[in-house]
Design a protein around this nucleic acid. Structure first.
Lengths: 193, 193
DNA sequence: AGCTACTAAACGAACGTTCAGTAAGGTCGC
DNA sequence: GCGACCTTACTGAACGTTCGTTTAGTAGCT
């Protein structure tokens, strides 16, 4: 059985991802977990601490797994294709991961992003930077990494949020289509002409 | 002299961009404008309406200007370079434009994004799509447009928000460096090999 | 006199947080 | 095997504060 604490973490993460820190109340979290708001304070010091714990909870090992088997043996291009597809699939399955990244980017003041980058990104960051260096030694690997992340995240976010006014074919919404598009664009763009 | 109403719009836009809709109170907006919160209700129906008016206010003509002189005469590649540089400079000067875009992407529930896309984007959308078609007729122009916007916005957002832990050279922060990077990557990626 | 642009004060509701109390379950000596 | 005792996981009610919004009143201009 899932513990009450884990249940709270999961529910809180979902709510924070959807509505932001200020947009969620302790009462709302309690209600979603079939508890009174006071019960939350039995498990967590305060709202801020619950938020931080929730972010840690959703990021957990997901991100580390992503890059765990990225060695030097396979060609860099193949690995980019693999990692893009994996990342997009993961973010598609767990939208919270992805909304929280955006929210932390936006609310730079909080120490949330520092937390995020220590909790979730040190390995990912290192592995990505290395991969970029192998792929395109003639380019700035930090900027390349930012480009790749920007492409992946924006396509996924746009898929969820973009205007109903535009009609978008199911094909343009498909994860595999998107990940192929991103991979092609990025590889062609990064490799020497 | 700037009218009280315009002053309120500017201040509200800034605050909403920085802290999100739920994160800003009417009292805070009033205080920033040297008014009581009640005075705001003389100019706007309620908080929601103020928000919408503020978004309209910051987007205004900025976006239309962006693409106003994008004709068929100049080569598409040159125009991409131009428009990327312009867009990045504009978003750098008016960070609110850019934070609000992200927040609307995140809070897809509200009708804010529809508003945004009707208010700010119909011309931009059309002009961009056309430009993409001229540049790379063999690719999906909608996905290409999303890619370009994702690159531009993510680089700018990362510049403001990324972890202090990483040390980033002033060069990597420079708008012209960033816009050159984005342009190069995108054009190489989109053009037929 | 009437309109515009505001202020001061208050409304009820919701906020994060605290606190006293309690029901259930384990642990102890006996 | 049993009462005494402690801990864990919670509830119900309340704390003071802040929220969005309303209302009555007023100073200054036309």
């Amino acid at each position: 059985m899932e513990s009450t604490q884990d249940k709270l973490l999961g529910i809180a993460a979902q709510l924070f991802a959807d509505q932001g820190f200020a947009g969620v109340s302790m009462r709302q979290i309690g209600r979603s977990a079939d508890l009174t708001q006071a019960a939350i304070y039995h498990h967590f010091e305060n709202k801020q601490e619950l938020y931080i714990a929730a972010v840690e909870h959703v990021y957990g090992d997901n991100m580390r797994e992503l890059v765990s088997d990225l060695g030097d043996n396979a060609p860099a291009e193949k690995q980019v294709a693999l990692v893009v597809n994996r990342l997009m699939t993961l973010l598609d399955e767990r939208p919270a991961l992805h909304s929280i990244y955006f929210r932390e980017l936006l609310d730079g003041e909080s120490d949330g992003l520092d937390l995020l980058s220590q909790q979730a990104f040190p390995e990912v960051d290192a592995a990505f930077t290395k991969l970029m260096q192998r792929l395109a030694p003639h380019m700035d690997s930090y900027l390349l990494m930012l480009s790749l992340i920007g492409l992946v995240f924006h396509h996924l976010q746009a898929r969820k949020g973009h205007p109903r006014s535009r009609d978008i074919s199911p094909e343009q919404q498909d994860i595999n289509t998107l990940s192929r598009h991103v991979t092609t664009l990025f590889l062609n763009g990064a490799l020497p002409q």
